[in-house]
Amino acid sequence: MMLEVSAESEMAIRVTLNGVAREGNATPRMQLADFLRHVLHAYGTHVGCEHGVCGACTVLIDGRAVRTCMMFAIQADGADIQTVEGLASSPDKLTALQSAFQKNHALQCGFCTPGILMSCVQFLAERPQPDEAEIREMLSGHLCRCTGYHGIVEAIKEVVADKSTSSA
């Protein structure tokens, strides 16, 4: 049966957000980014340009880094969503990637950071040993106006290097 929802109607959207079943209502035109923030109150995902350029709103949807301003909440019904809130188990127990960002000054204002972290999660899972060119190519999908990207590249390289020595 083809799903049909009129413009004014709200539909119950069910997602798994960082391992927890969540539900909220959205009209068809609500962006997934706004649904995460304003309906599910998951404010870790930031909204920058709202036209698919800056990458700030990137989350993992079924394991893939996707811009949530380019998707409507209604399209994500049933999806498994991971956001920055799902990375560290507590504020003093950062993931290796987050610690490397802190150590290498990979952020200043932190607005772009949640999106970049989520892209890195997929990227490093797919390519455990990327070279710098591949890291920069992946990062080209994110805008950061504070760091000049150097610290971000260094942080990712450090995580890659640590992983290879610990597994050797």
């Binding site: 083809m2 799903l3 049909e4 929802v5 009129s6 413009a7 004014e8 009209t27 068809p28 035109r29 962006q31 706004d34 709202e50 409507f72 209604i74």
Partner: peptide, 9 residues
């Protein structure tokens, strides 16, 4: 934000 639209899937 997008203008209102109906949605069919």
């Amino acid at each position: 934000k997008a203008a209102p639209f109906s949605y069919v899937r």
